[in-house]
C-alpha cells in the first residue's frame, strides 16, 4: 500500500478515533497515580473507550461476529417506521415520494443527503463548515483581544459580508448581534466589553 492509497483511505473519522484513543490511553495510564477509589471510574471508562476505539479503527480486520458490532445501522426503528408506512399504504411509492420531496432541514438526529455548500473567497473556494469553523475561532481570538461585545457585530458583519449579502442586511444583523450580546451583559452581568488590548467598556 503506497502513501497515496493510505492518504485516500484515511478520513476525519480516523482522526476522531485517534483523538478518542489518545485521550483515553493517557487518562487510563494517569489513573494509576490516583488513589484506588478515585481511579476506579476513569479507569473503567477509559478502558471501555480504548476497546471501542480500537475495534472501530481496526474494523476491517475483525472476525465475522464482531463485525456485527461495528457495522453502521440506520437504527432499530428505521425498519419499523418504513414498514409501518409502506405496508399500510396501498401505494407505497407515493409515500416514498413524499418522504423524498419533503425537505427536512437537518436537526438533532437526522442525516439527509444534501448538497455541499462552498464559500467563494475570491482566491480560494472553501467548504462552508470549514469556513464557519475558522471564522468562529477568529471570533474567539478577537473577543479575547477587544471584548466579545464588540467582536460579535464584527464577526457577523464579516461572515455575511463574505457571503455577499446586501450591506443593509449586514448592518442590521450586526446590530442585532450587538444587542443580543448586550442583553447577556444585562441578564448575566458578564464582563465582555473589554479585551486584553482594547477596553471600550467606558463608552457604554
Amino acid at each position: 500500500m503506497n502513501v497515496q492509497t493510505v492518504r485516500e483511505k484515511v478520513t476525519m473519522e480516523h482522526g476522531l478515533l485517534v483523538m478518542f484513543l489518545g485521550v483515553a490511553v493517557y487518562m487510563f495510564v494517569e489513573s494509576y497515580t490516583f488513589s484506588e477509589r478515585a481511579a476506579a471510574f476513569p479507569r473503567f471508562t477509559a478502558g471501555a473507550t480504548i476497546v471501542g476505539a480500537l475495534l472501530l479503527l481496526f474494523r476491517s480486520y475483525l472476525p465475522g461476529p464482531l463485525q456485527q458490532l461495528v457495522v453502521d445501522s440506520d437504527g432499530a426503528f428505521e425498519d419499523i417506521t418504513d414498514e409501518e408506512v409502506a405496508t399500510s399504504d396501498s401505494e407505497p411509492s407515493e409515500i416514498e415520494e413524499k418522504q423524498e420531496s419533503a425537505d427536512p432541514t437537518p436537526t438533532d438526529d437526522e442525516d439527509e443527503d444534501v448538497e455541499t455548500r462552498y464559500v467563494d473567497l475570491k482566491w480560494i473556494s472553501m467548504h462552508g463548515s470549514q469556513f464557519t469553523g475558522i471564522i468562529s475561532v477568529l471570533f474567539v481570538v478577537l473577543s479575547y483581544l477587544i471584548g466579545m461585545l464588540w467582536a460579535a457585530p464584527l464577526f457577523v458583519a464579516t461572515y455575511l459580508g463574505v457571503l455577499r449579502r446586501p450591506w443593509y442586511i449586514v448592518l442590521a444583523m450586526s446590530g442585532i448581534a450587538f444587542l443580543l450580546a448586550y442583553s447577556f451583559v444585562l441578564v448575566l452581568g458578564i464582563d465582555i466589553d473589554g479585551g486584553v488590548v482594547l477596553d471600550l467598556g467606558q463608552f457604554l
Binding site: V23, A24, G52, E78, D109
Partner: peptide, 21 residues
C-alpha cells in the same frame, strides 16, 4: 436504537463519561 454501529455509540458514551472525570 440510534443510527450508527453499537460500538460507535458505546465509545461516544464512554468518552462522554470519561471527560467528566
Amino acid at each position: 436504537i440510534s443510527k450508527g454501529s453499537m460500538v460507535k455509540g458505546l465509545t461516544a458514551g464512554m468518552f462522554g463519561l470519561l471527560i467528566t472525570t
